[in-house]
């Protein structure tokens, strides 16, 4: 992909050369230090630019040029070096700059110049005005959808998470399945209906709703060294990542 190329060629997600590093998928990682509690009166934003970064991200999102899934994937596509050295809002900000270019809203020349070099007449009508902010924030973006896909599992069913839980639609693509759950056996705790499938939606391939379940795992089924034998972890998992435990067992026996 050349510098300055427009987002029209960006059908398969952020910058064809960029794949997510999976560094964001850090559940269960060892070696992080202690937590630092915050008092209730700590400011919501520690620095002014944190607030600006959040507001700019939300206001840019209102232009309607990308989905939440797509913007998450853009942050996951930061280089491993950047992902680890950037603070939280630096990741947001860099992801925002990258997605604005990838979708053709801004050009790399404009980022270099620090000013606008061309107008964007089509998009100005979508500019989020202050009087519309409350409505925009309070209307949200529900992800529940009607779907013809039959829910294969019921509450109480034993299921196994597919061992290769990566995105099967786009190589190196977005996925919301933490790797610590791959291959683990759990039990369906809740069914949430069909929800937008991020693996597809993050890459402009449609919402492709899939049945979504909360699946409960014994903590001891995920890692050794459980602190308590009854502790559990629940993940929300889309149907394509699940198979019946009985089927998996009969295959391996």
């Amino acid at each position: 992909m050349r510098l300055g190329q427009s987002g029209l060629h960006d059908r398969h997600g952020p910058a064809a050369g960029a794949k997510m590093s999976r560094l964001h998928d850090m559940g269960g990682r060892i070696g992080d230090g202690p937590l630092h509690p915050e008092t209730a009166d700590a400011p919501v934003f520690a620095k002014d630019w944190h607030a600006r970064a959040l507001a700019l991200t939300l206001a840019s999102g209102a232009l309607g040029q990308w989905s939440l899934d797509r913007s998450r994937h853009q942050r996951e596509c930061l280089s491993p070096q950047d992902y680890m050295r950037f603070s939280y809002y630096e990741k947001w900000l860099s992801g925002l700059a990258d997605i604005l270019v990838a979708t053709g809203v801004l050009t790399t020349d404009e980022l270099k110049a620090g000013r606008s070099l061309s107008s964007a007449p089509d998009l100005t009508q979508r500019c989020l005005k202050s009087e519309r902010v409350q409505k925009a924030l309070s209307s949200g973006g529900p992800t529940l959808r009607d779907s013809q896909t039959v829910a294969q599992f019921e509450v109480g069913d034993r299921v196994i998470v597919r061992r290769f839980g990566h995105n099967s639609l786009v190589a190196g693509g977005h996925s919301r399945l933490p790797r610590y759950a791959r291959g683990a056996e759990g039990q369906v705790l809740n069914y949430h209906g069909a929800h937008i499938f991020p693996d597809s939606n993050a890459h402009g391939l449609g919402e492709a709703p899939e049945p979504l379940y909360s699946v409960v795992f014994l903590r001891s089924a995920l890692w050794s060294g459980a602190e308590h034998p009854d502790d559990e972890v629940v993940l929300d998992i889309w149907q394509p990542y699940l198979q019946p435990a009985s089927l998996a067992k009969s295959r391996t026996s």
């Binding site: 970064a53 840019s60 801004l106 000013r115 989020l128």
Partner: peptide, 27 residues
Amino acid sequence: PALRVQALETILREKGLIDPDALAAII
């Protein structure tokens, strides 16, 4: 990062894609 936000905000504002009052309202 503070300059980074400012630069992005400037470009988007000049293009008419960001209303500074809306940013203040969100915050």
